[in-house]
């Protein structure tokens, strides 16, 4: 009995440890391995810096080699499935180190992707007309809104493979409804003319 309970606990602990998203980087890096970050490939993290637009960079270009959980700007790396949009916004500083021009565009809104916020309002995502995505804004009063950058850099550009692939194509534009047939228009007009003539004759005769 005790044995089986222990075994189950052990198995559960192993699974939990393996699938914990916030697995501490320092667990491997600092005490045992002491990596200096001079690598381009980290198969355990599924990162390959020999291909892609960031090819040629080393881990230590962005990560602190002593503690890879830290970036060189001092921010702590949060796994993408745990990070909120506010956390991801912090990493923009790092991108700006090498891409100052794009960052300047981003700040003034010339890089696109801006959205608006209002006091006490929210925006929720819906799949709407023709299955196209749309953010539905709900504000108590649609006044005094502020345009802000919509998404952080790493939301669209994977930092280890930053080329943005094209998104899917939405369905075809809809046609205007077809006009009525020419023959139908002709028949209707003729009928109306005859009716008008008959009515006027009738009115004349009755007088």
């Amino acid at each position: 009995m005790m044995k089986s309970v222990l075994l189950a606990t052990l198995i559960l602990a192993t699974i939990a440890l393996a699938y914990t998203p916030a697995y501490p980087c320092t667990y491997c890096h600092t005490p045992f391995l002491k990596l200096n970050g001079n690598v381009r490939k980290a198969p355990i993290h599924k990162i390959d810096l020999t291909v892609g637009a960031h090819a040629g960079l080393y881990c230590s270009n962005c990560h602190d080699p002593k503690n890879p959980m830290k970036l060189i700007t001092g921010d702590i790396v949060i796994p993408p499935n745990l990070a909120s949009e506010k956390d991801l916004m912090k990493y923009n500083k790092l991108c700006a180190k090498c891409h100052p021009e794009v960052y300047a565009d981003y700040l003034v809104g010339a890089h696109g992707n801006s959205t608006y916020v209002c006091n006490g309002g929210t925006a929720y995502f819906v799949i709407g007309y023709k299955h196209s995505p749309w953010w539905y804004h709900v504000c108590p009063e649609y006044k005094n809104m502020h345009t802000v950058p919509g998404k952080p850099c790493v939301f669209c550009h994977n930092p280890h493979d930053p080329i943005k692939p094209p998104a899917s194509i939405m369905p075809l534009p809809s046609d205007r409804p077809a006009p009525p047939k020419q023959s139908a228009i002709e028949y209707t007009t003729t009928f109306l003319l005859i009716l008008a003539a008959a009515l006027s004759i009738f009115a004349y005769v009755k007088k």
Partner: peptide
């Protein structure tokens, strides 16, 4: 949207950030 400080719907939805307003 724009007269009250917001941005247009097309700018907001663009997945590649092609538009600027």
């Amino acid at each position: 949207r724009t007269r009250d400080g917001g941005t247009t719907a097309c700018v907001e939805i663009c997945p590649v950030g092609a538009r600027a307003f």
